[in-house]
Write a protein that binds this DNA or RNA. Structure first.
Lengths: 346, 346
DNA sequence: GTTAGCACTCACTAAGATAGAGTGCTAATA
DNA sequence: TATTAGCACTCTATCTTAGTGAGTGCTAAC
């Protein structure tokens, strides 16, 4: 805000204060800092610096006779320019890779990632499912149901299956549907789903005149089937209950609202979406997220890549007062490992 | 326990006490009961009766100078023989039916039921998914994947689709798989899944000698595919967060354990399973359930039927102190409506 | 059998009193 | 000029104390 440059001493002080507060959870006072602070300064001097920090809005006193606590702005500065990233525990990464290797299908892999995140950090883990943009159609099957309905089975991306039900104008025999499927498979198999939609339109124009009725039906069915978007919510959550053990979260009313948000998923997804195009780990501290339910939380998120292209975001949600120095590398590594695992799986 | 018969007065007193406690949530004393009790009795007389009730273990005093609170045994007697079932609110049933009519597939229908339950009661709603015993196979499809894996698509019960991946010894061409599928469809289509398994065994015996290799492969594949059971957890929960608003649930530690149990689902499923063969609404009060996490909760559950056969259980979970007279008919009606809706949908 | 009366228990609340942590300010110091 | 010791002050947290009120059990009278 104000162009005020912080002296090096003030920065160091802030760093120590935040670190101390993250460890203890108690407001930290000048005396404590003076004692545990390498650079020998008296409490009085420290008080002077603290007063400055408070003026700039980096720290704040719950009441006159309490120590200081970092504000959101304080955390922000701490994370952006003061943080010493902790090296990852030996074994965590290999443990990780081992577990990932056990998941055979991508769904489980993603679920496993979110569980890992929550377990290792004792907070809530989130994994936004990979975007389905570049799904390529492998095969289409149609099966007749009663009441002029048709079950459409789409096999995409080698091994994923989507089922849709469409309503037709008349009933079709199994043989007719088989024909239609053959026609469509021939036409579209192997293409990306969004291209399939284009192809269908072209086909419709190209051959409108000399097309038989069945083909026309085929195309209209396909359009119906492909226009339905997946109704999945696209977010995997794990370890929400971990949050119940934090003192900061003991307000039942707020906690309920947070859990409700978890269940709705919408807000969380929207927030994570903001990290889709970020480069590396991104952090939302308290109110920074813009979602009231997350006011007492921080979100540490990172996009993950498949084939070098960002397809999703993962991260953790926990109290603002968390061990960022540990959590950040965990999220970072997890994103990388998940990406490469997904790659191998493909 | 002791063959002690309760006098009619004692029963009435217990009834009033429990009703009052359920309304207010406060221990109720002799004075209160005397005042609000139709039969004119002085506090002193009431105290005598209460002392008796406490001796039998139906009520209990948190401390000397507090009123009385029903024990589990007290609730049990209240529910079993004293409860006056409340008539259902006008409109609730029709509202219900309307909402159910909007769900087209059974999955949504079940989810809707559990949401309904939680909303109407302000507690947690649970719906155990219908048992899949009598699923009948409609069609099988095979698709080759890489690395000698085959994607098996099972269409069952008209409109449900299950996907499985099996590992084969060699790789098969699409044409071969098509042949295998044809053979299996001819052999098994329309049969119930458990019979399919039998059929496969017979077929294997019958024709072992003059069977060609491909058929043998087909059967072994089918066995692999059908032996995998569904990995779904089979329980729909809704409105868990409702429970966070009850004073009785303000102990964060217990609450967390409860939520963890919800996530695990196993215990809840096991408990509900006990109601599968019950006739009508069944109630587990506090420790009666046998699950420690449910010590402060009651579960009101009812089986629901399709075609006259019980296929699942639904119900609500809430604090022991709940309005049983309202909740019981709600669960009851919901079970009936869900059953008939599922019937229609079939 | 019922009830009025009474002594007693116990949780809850309010009101001091005390201790402890931490602050800001001022004046002395290096 | 930057640092620090000293001090008065503020505010929370905790403990004690006393008082209040709801409710009980028992006994004796009705």
């Amino acid at each position: 805000m104000s162009g005020t440059e912080l002296t090096e001493r003030a920065q160091l002080l802030l760093k120590n204060l935040v670190e101390h507060y993250i460890r203890d959870g108690q407001p930290v006072g000048s005396r404590t800092l003076s004692r545990e602070f390498s650079m020998g300064l008296s409490p009085a001097s420290i008080r002077n610096v603290m007063a400055d920090l408070e003026d700039i809005g980096l720290i704040h006193s719950p009441h006159t006779s309490a120590g200081r606590v970092p504000t959101v702005k304080g955390y922000r500065m701490f994370i952006d320019s003061l943080l010493t990233i902790q090296p990852l525990e030996q074994g965590l990464v290999s443990d990780w890779m081992q577990r990932l290797r056990n998941s055979e299908d991508s769904e489980r892999l993603l679920a496993s990632a979110s569980h890992q995140l929550s377990e290792v950090t004792s907070m809530a883990g989130v994994v936004m499912l990979p975007r389905r943009e570049q799904v390529s159609l492998r095969q289409v099957e149609f099966l007749p149901l009663s009441h002029n309905r048709v079950l459409v089975i789409l096999v995409v991306n080698e091994k994923e299956v989507q089922n849709r039900i469409i309503q037709t104008e008349r009933s079709y025999s199994a043989a007719e549907l088989q024909q239609i499927a053959n026609y469509l498979n021939q036409l579209c198999a192997g293409q990306e789903l969004r291209r399939v939609r284009e192809s269908l339109l072209n086909e419709l124009d190209d051959t409108r005149s000399h097309m038989n009725q069945l083909m026309a039906d085929a195309i209209s069915m396909a359009q119906q089937a492909f226009s339905q978007d997946e109704d999945e919510d696209g977010l995997l959550l794990a370890g929400q209950t971990n949050l119940m053990s934090y003192d900061e979260m003991s307000n039942m009313d707020k906690l309920r609202k947070l859990f409700d948000a978890f269940n709705r998923k919408r807000d969380i997804l929207q927030l994570l979406d903001q990290s889709l195009h970020a480069d590396g780990v991104q952090i939302f501290i308290g109110e920074e997220s813009g979602y009231e339910v997350l006011d007492d939380c921080s979100v540490v998120a990172s996009p993950y890549r498949v084939d070098g292209k960002v397809v999703g975001v993962l991260g953790v949600i926990g109290p603002t007062r968390m061990a960022y120095d540990r959590v950040i590398p965990i999220v970072d590594v997890t994103a990388q490992l998940l990406g490469s695992s997904l790659n191998q799986l493909k």
